[in-house]
């Protein structure tokens, strides 16, 4: 509304000179100062990240080879050699199963919240619950699954771990997907409706593709968080020393749990394995990210 006044004033004064040379000395100085501060902030953010990656690669790279990825975990912490195959299999299966449960449910939830529920009481309750769920510490979620699932079926399994991780991922997926759907301009929906598309068709072919890149990012954040969770895994999945591909029967293990167990030992062989596991975990999460980016770029609306 107020913008309507500005063209008139601007034309009266002639086109304003917006180049940097036209700025006063004081303003130019402030500009430089602010730019420098931003660069400093970038540096502050990048330095720890670079240090972490350097440290993990330098210490974990030493043990990284094919047999580390394919061999069983040695029973004795003190012994050299062995690998992390059971933990890698466990991480892929448990995180994968958790993503399969949490992401579709979360995205459907977000679609309901933004496209159908809007400000209705049910939608408000769901939103509030999702926010509360985000704040539940992961160890509490682990204990919840321990009581409600592990004790019920009578054994610790990989699936119990997947359930706990799914519970942790769900609120993140719901809230981030909803934010992304909210960013899709209403004009797109109206245009689709004007062409005679029904609501479900509009949502499926217009709204979702427009938001897919953001939804993917949100889901990835959730997957990355879940892949790094230690506490619930330790509580509900037990431990194995050779790979267990059955999520529903027998103990399982995952990389973060192995990092925790091995890093707290005073033996060098175990600490080396912990560094190796940390490097493996980082690479796996990076792999997830790349795959998800490729998938989302296929479905996204091409820009311009």
């Amino acid at each position: 509304m107020t913008a309507t006044a500005s063209p008139a004033t601007r034309s009266a004064a002639g086109a304003p000179d917006l180049t940097r040379a036209a700025l006063s000395g004081r303003r130019r100085f402030t500009n430089h100062l602010a730019t420098a501060a931003i660069w400093l902030a970038v540096l502050l953010a990048v330095v720890p990240l670079a240090l972490v990656i350097y440290e993990v690669v330098a210490k974990g790279g030493g043990v990284m080879n094919m047999s580390f990825l394919t061999e069983d975990i040695p029973n004795s912490y003190r012994r050299d050699g062995g690998g992390m195959a059971p933990a890698i299999v466990g991480t892929l299966l448990i995180t994968g199963a958790a993503a399969l449960m949490a992401i579709p449910l979360g995205v459907f939830g977000a679609i309901y919240l933004n496209e159908y529920g809007k400000q209705r009481p049910l939608a408000r309750v769901i939103r509030l619950m999702a926010d509360v769920m985000t704040g539940v510490p992961s160890i509490v979620m682990g204990l919840f699954i321990y009581i409600s699932w592990v004790l019920l079926v009578g054994q610790q399994t990989g699936f119990a771990g997947a359930l706990a991780l799914a519970c942790l991922m769900l609120p993140v997926v719901i809230r981030s997907s909803e934010e992304m759907l909210r960013l899709v301009p209403d004009e797109l929906r109206q245009a689709s409706m004007a062409l005679g598309a029904r609501k479900w068709k509009t949502t499926l072919t217009v709204v979702l593709p427009a938001a897919i890149s953001g939804i993917t990012s949100g889901s990835l954040l959730a997957v990355a968080r879940a892949a790094g969770e230690t506490a619930p895994i330790i509580i509900v999945t037990g431990i194995v020393f050779s790979p267990n591909v059955n999520l529903f029967d027998g103990f399982n293990t995952a990389l973060p749990a192995q990092i925790f167990r091995n890093a707290s030992q005073p033996f060098e062989a175990a600490q080396d394995r912990a560094w190796g596991a940390a490097l493996t975990l980082i690479v796996i999460v990076l792999g997830f990210t790349i795959i998800a980016r490729l998938i989302s770029s296929r479905f996204a609306i091409k820009e311009r």
Binding site: E71, G83, A85, L93
Partner: peptide, 9 residues
């Protein structure tokens, strides 16, 4: 996962 475990199990 099998591809990874192959000889490990």
């Amino acid at each position: 996962a099998l591809a990874l475990t192959g000889c490990g199990s």
